[in-house]
Design a protein around this nucleic acid. Sequence first.
DNA 1: TGCATAGTTAGCCAAGCATCTAATTAATAT
DNA 2: ATATTAATTAGATGCTTGGCTAACTATGCA
Lengths: 126, 126
Amino acid sequence: MDILTALFKALSDRNRLRIVSALLKHDELCACQLTELIHVTGATASRHMGVLISSGLVDSRKDGRWVYYRIRREQADFGVLIGWIESQLSHDPGIEHDAKTLDDITSCEPEDLCRKQRGDECCPKK
Amino acid sequence: MDILTALFKALSDRNRLRIVSALLKHDELCACQLTELIHVTGATASRHMGVLISSGLVDSRKDGRWVYYRIRREQADFGVLIGWIESQLSHDPGIEHDAKTLDDITSCEPEDLCRKQRGDECCPKK
DNA sequence: TGCATAGTTAGCCAAGCATCTAATTAATAT
DNA sequence: ATATTAATTAGATGCTTGGCTAACTATGCA
């Protein structure tokens, strides 16, 4: 039961739901990309990722300086739930808007994105 | 998206999940029965029911002095989710224990149960 | 070796929430 | 009508949480 409440708690935050939805579409995204998407500080994004990971829904992989996140689709128990969330959000206006933002975000390498986040202006804007 | 976060928030509390699970088994239960199950004051239980109702997951019906609650199974959108929760909790120790408690609780009429809650000792104990 | 930098952790604060008691509302029963 | 009572609402309190800044960790590069 506690596993379930933790899972629902992880999913009960707007920004975390946006992150989950983004990961459902892009399979693997790094911290800086998710930070850019939900528009919070890196520290806050990192905390959200921590919640999602300890709920068992998300997995992380470190590659050099970057950390990549993905949905743990192999968690068979969650498969039905994940599919249901995906269908519920498929026509959500906020999520659709995020999808467009994500296209821009993923159109440049994390390296460039991070430079942009420091104010260097490099990626195709909007 | 907000509908979804509200729904997950409603499900992210241990006592509310116990209530949902109870309603999945008994179809219809009144406030005093649910209060007895989760062992909180009537005011607290009432507040939990308010959260579940505004999430769209639960419906209420007034009958005289009593209020009965049920899962809104006709909400087609939630059907899959409800089924999934049901399967996830089917072998949960805490929920199984609640099921036994519920058998005792439902073995007497709400009227008698409420008298017992005032300390009158009437229902089959244990 | 030492600097730059992506991400996490720590510490803080304001908002939200679960719970309680007390007051209120709505229905029954005397 | 008046008292009783099931349920909700109001108000108070302590805990949790989402956000921030700042400090820390760890990785890559000069």
